[in-house]
Design a protein around this nucleic acid. Structure first.
Length: 480
DNA sequence: TTTTGAGTTGTTCGA
DNA sequence: GTCGAACAACTCAAA
């Protein structure tokens, strides 16, 4: 350590881990006395405020990070407000002359960081940024023409050509923390946890905390879930999905750690490839967000600007509450409400019902997911909603209207998932579980179900809704 | 330069 | 019950 050095700031943002954290690692290497900072910034313009479930996740991520830093002899300085003035305060308080961070890719976040980098440079504070959240810097992935990719498969092949991602970095062996560190807030004072009512019980029961929790999930997945992943990932009752997305959201785990662990794990080639390609989809979503920064609020395909979405539909509320009368959709929406998560297959079916059956704008669904998902993510969430709606990159073709009855039968054939989340129809035999309205009156009676009372009638008839959706898409073709 | 083929996740219809 | 075709339009890269 060189005591003559001025302090160095490490600004944690969406990289709340101590292992494989390039900014932390490089800052530690300088040997300069370190100050680790987190700022809850809900004030800078263009920065999208976190959804409620994300905040819950963020609280626990911060708690875990603070503990890890304490174990290394340091602490996490926590403040709240606009990033720029707060960082200036901290620089003034500590005399730091360098700041290290890992890059973010939301348009508002990029703007904040770019402005800071320029201004710090002018005032003699060197800002060093690193690639830590993605396997490849989005600006460096280009088609043969030099354009950004709009289709996944060629994007994936381009990633393959770029070679193996680097190996994960270790936790810094030694960090010299500044002795007299500035004071900040307690994490709990950030108000990230729900109070009245405390709706987070289901989340607490579902998600182990912090960086340690992330690695627990990864280990479990590589021990069990990955075996049969390629097919099992579509079955919501199976335990084949990794459930790592909430941890990726705030960087409690990095894609490098996941990538190399999956490469090293014992698994058959098809399962492993399929899983790595899902990591690739996350990359693709960020590639889109970086190159098309308004993807969160504007149709990627402009043709959709004239799509006849319904304004102010009361159906939105029924969908949000899991009361559409389509059991697989309601199961998903209730899983979401209870755990902050929904299985990927069910996300597609539930999203398709909102945009195609109910003709409600994908943005309404995106906003609901943003608020309720613990993995609500500025790239994946909008890109996936637009994909389902048909307005997105490499999107589902317009004529692909999921049939929620068939999807339920195909992917939850024995009804384990649906019965768990829609208990009021659990007694129905498999044959009618995904279409209760087709059950004979006597069966319903025996199962204690009064359709329209104890469980809703379908919010719309599937066949009619399908025709209506296809008609709506016809208007796009005419609009040219 | 132009052409060609392939492309995460489906459903319905009619033979 | 099973099977193939139809349901667009566009991107990307190989030929």
């Amino acid at each position: 350590m060189n005591d003559a050095q001025k302090p160095v700031l490490v600004w944690f943002r969406e990289d709340l881990r101590i292992a494989d954290n390039p900014a932390l690692f490089k800052a530690a290497e300088t040997g300069a006395p370190m100050v680790a900072v987190f700022i809850l910034d809900e004030e800078s313009t263009g920065v999208r405020p976190f959804g409620s479930a994300q905040k819950w996740m963020l609280h626990h991520a911060l708690t875990g990070l603070a503990k890890s830093l304490q174990d290394l002899g340091g602490s996490l300085l926590v403040r709240r407000g606009a990033s720029e003035p707060i960082l200036r305060d901290i620089i003034a308080e500590t005399g730091a002359d360098r700041i290290f961070w890992n890059r973010r890719y939301g348009p508002g976040e990029i703007a904040v960081d770019a402005k800071l980098k320029a201004e710090f440079g002018d005032s003699g504070v060197a800002a060093h940024s690193f690639l830590g959240a993605l396997l490849h810097e989005p600006s460096r992935v280009k088609t043969g023409n030099g354009d950004p990719f709009r289709v996944y498969s060629p994007f994936w092949r381009a990633l393959e050509r770029m070679g193996e991602p680097r190996l994960p970095l270790p936790v810094p062996e030694e960090i010299a923390f500044l002795d007299n560190r500035p004071k900040g807030m307690e994490i709990v004072e950030l108000g990230l946890l729900p109070v009245k009512p405390d709706w987070a019980k289901g989340l607490r029961d579902t998600w182990p905390n912090g960086e340690a929790g992330a690695h627990e999930m990864l280990a479990k997945f590589l021990d069990h879930g990955i075996h049969g992943y390629a097919d099992g990932r579509d079955m919501p009752a199976a335990e084949n999905v990794s459930r790592l997305s909430p941890y990726l959201r705030f960087g409690m785990i990095s894609p490098y750690q996941i990538w190399h662990a999956a490469k090293a794990a014992e698994a058959n080639a098809r399962d492993r490839e399929k899983f790595l390609k899902e990591v690739g989809w996350r990359e693709f979503a960020y590639h889109l967000l970086f190159n098309f920064p308004d993807i969160g609020w504007r149709n990627f395909s402009e043709r959709f600007d004239v799509f006849p979405w319904k304004e102010q539909s009361p159906d939105l509320k029924a969908w949000q509450r899991g009361m559409t009368g389509y059991p697989i959709v309601d199961a998903g929406m209730r899983e979401l409400w209870h755990t902050g998560y929904m299985h990927n297959r069910v996300r597609m079916v539930a999203a398709s019902l909102l945009v195609k059956h109910l003709l409600i704008h994908w943005k309404a669904g995106e906003e609901w997911f943003w608020d309720t998902l613990v993995d609500g993510d500025p790239a994946n969430n909008p890109a996936s909603w637009q994909w389902v709606a048909g307005s997105g990159a490499d999107a589902a073709p317009y004529f692909r209207v999921f049939n929620p009855i068939l999807q339920g039968r195909k992917f939850d054939p024995d009804g384990e998932y649906t019965r768990k989340w829609v208990p009021e129809i659990a007694a129905l035999p498999d044959k009618y579980l995904h279409c209760p309205w087709e059950a004979p009156a006597e069966t319903l009676l025996n199962c204690g179900i009064r359709l329209g009372k104890s469980y809703p009638m379908p919010i719309i008839d599937h066949d009619k809704a399908r025709i209506r959706a296809l008609d709506a898409f016809e208007t796009l073709k005419k609009a040219i």
